[in-house]
Amino acid sequence: ILELRLVQATLFKNVLEAISDLFSKANFDFSGTGLELQAMDTSHVALVALLLRAEAFNHYLCDRDLSMGLNLADMAKAFRCANNDDIITIKAEEDWSDTVTFTFESPEDGEISIFDFDFVGTNGVPLEIPEFPESEYQAKVRMPSAKFMRICKKLSSFGDSGDRDTVVIISVDKECVNFFTRGKTGTSTIVCRQTQTVDKPKEPTLIEMKEQVSLAFDLRYMNSFSKGSTLSDQVTISLSSNLPAVFEYKIAETGYIRYYMLPRIEE
């Protein structure tokens, strides 16, 4: 039997907002450890992996591993009807009837909404995701997630074709990370310096560089990744010319959301 409860719908609402525009379906793996979610976009450019440990839930009972594919658009619609302080219950019955039930209960007026979701096929997930060796990454940038989101928005408004097919070049050089894009009649560069942690200890921008790196990414995807900002105050971007870049948001003490994407290369 699977039975989970969260006393505030916000966490799950934010998770869905952070993934549902880019990924149409996801695989949800429930085990004793917690919930592991994975989704790959249809063009196999981006992968998202989420971990919410059992401790993230107010009640967590899972006595048998259960893996289910779910349609994220339908789930996002249902969750938009939920208030932030609704109590969510997630249940799957013993007979594994290929459906999962999400219940939203308003603590104020006692109204209960029940959604049953049928399992669907997924785009080839779940996948084995190795921990890539730290040493393989040329640079690592940590910054406030709101700042990263703002940068993506600024670049989108300048990019030559709006969000579509605009390329951003992220380059790290000593204590600076630059975001560069080309518009119709010019270019735009946003420079972020490493901040002194004594000034703003809560929102540092930290840059760890082994060697200079300059990589081209699709802005549309980066923009979607930046929606992880509702889940964490900080984002860590790991950059390598040989490995998928990782955009990671740690979720308090209870897990993370990681987006993977390879850079674009000259043919």
């Binding site: 993977y260 674009r264 043919e267």
Partner: peptide, 14 residues
Amino acid sequence: KPKQQVLSRFFSPK
């Protein structure tokens, strides 16, 4: 424009 690489070669099915 530079070509987008796909992730397939880095991840295998569980």
